[in-house]
Design a protein around this nucleic acid. Sequence first.
DNA 1: TTTATATATTGACATATTTAAATATGTTGT
DNA 2: ACAACATATTTAAATATGTCAATATATAAA
Lengths: 106, 106
Amino acid sequence: MEQVYIETAKMLKAMSDPKRLRIVDMLSCGELCACVILESFNITQPTLSHDMKQLVEAGLVKDRRDGKRIYYSLDRDALTKMHSILGRMFEEKPNCICRNVSKSHG
Amino acid sequence: MEQVYIETAKMLKAMSDPKRLRIVDMLSCGELCACVILESFNITQPTLSHDMKQLVEAGLVKDRRDGKRIYYSLDRDALTKMHSILGRMFEEKPNCICRNVSKSHG
DNA sequence: TTTATATATTGACATATTTAAATATGTTGT
DNA sequence: ACAACATATTTAAATATGTCAATATATAAA
């Protein structure tokens, strides 16, 4: 499978949970510490930590420590890039390269 | 959880698999029957059927029967809408409504 | 160095997803 | 009605995900 599908799918998967998507939305106004994000959900601290790790590992969110706290912020470059790749995938095209390619999976 | 996160996450989840994402890309040039899509992957017919069902149920893809064959095509309205919702979620904002809202999950 | 606070990791469990084999359904042609 | 073909559904197994309780780690303050 072409790398672009794998990488994009990984990002989409990280956002494919309503609560993680909401976290991305929250971060769009600027960085937040884990403690503040945690307050806005009825989940335990380990659950949030796990969710944040997924967002970070997918490359959508950056983390930074300041004292005891970890601050999260969006990786806007990555998100912008992903958004435009997605747009090109939906976009009406006269011909798709992928159709002329041999079997992709396996 | 607000409905927009739930619905958008559902669409993202449908596309969060490399092969389903590639199918969306393939369909962006126009409709294709299941048989043609199947030929471009090394998966079994039931697996493709299951994948297509996910795309259809998420509202990203439409299906239509013509004789023995089922033709799939993108639901461009749904995709365009989802794309713009996503864009707004990443977008830099001075203030997030979601931050002023009480606990969301549970 | 002890204590308190913030976050991460581990272990366990329930649920969901992926996938294929077997089978069923719907459609066309004979 | 029967055979052939295209797609869908069912079943089952392997794997992944979501979640919490318990515990560990990192930092700051006393």
